[in-house]
């Protein structure tokens, strides 16, 4: 079936099997390979994307369920030439190592930061509880996310 959805802000029309996984549509049909497959069972969060602004495991979403909706992948957060504050802070705090969990971590953290303000450590940990990282021990990720929140809050104050 043909579905129309918004991907990283652009309207896309794609031909999909209705019960294909959103993950496969993103990686194979749309060629956006930033989103990773980890467990394929909704446990690890590597495939996290935003569906209408909320983090979901794209390995557990049927393609047809995305018709008319908005999907944001890690490619929608920034680019190699122009990293977001969140991406920069995750790098500078050592919150990204092997990189498999990183796209999902960034997407979950971006959803948290989109609510504004500076979250507590506990709030960051809850928002990222569905993203498993085997390298960093998490503290560096938490530090990076909070540093990005501080920067965003300062930028918001400067803009207003």
């Amino acid at each position: 079936m043909r579905i129309v959805l918004t991907v990283n802000g652009a309207v896309r029309e794609v031909d999909v099997a209705p019960v294909a996984r959103l993950l496969d549509v993103i990686r194979e049909t749309l060629g956006l390979t930033g989103t990773k497959e980890g467990c394929g069972e909704g446990e690890c969060g590597a495939c996290t994307v935003l569906l209408d602004g909320t983090p979901v495991n794209s390995c557990l979403v049927a393609a047809a369920q995305c018709a008319g909706r908005s999907v944001v992948t890690v490619e929608g957060l920034g680019s190699a030439e122009r990293l977001s504050a969140l991406q920069e802070e995750l790098v500078s705090h050592g919150g990204a190592q092997c990189g498999i969990c990183t796209p999902g971590v960034l997407v979950s953290a971006a959803a948290l930061l989109s609510r504004g303000g500076v979250p507590t450590d506990a709030e960051v940990r809850e928002a990222l509880a569905g993203n498993i990282c085997r390298c960093t021990g998490y503290q560096k990720i938490v530090d990076g996310v909070r540093a990005a929140a501080v920067r965003n809050a300062a930028a918001a104050r400067g803009a207003s």
């Binding site: 909704g42 569906l51 983090p55 979901v56 959803a111 809850e126 509880a129 569905g130």
Partner: peptide
Amino acid sequence: VGAIQIQAR
């Protein structure tokens, strides 16, 4: 239940 990704679905 799970974490936010599972709760959302």
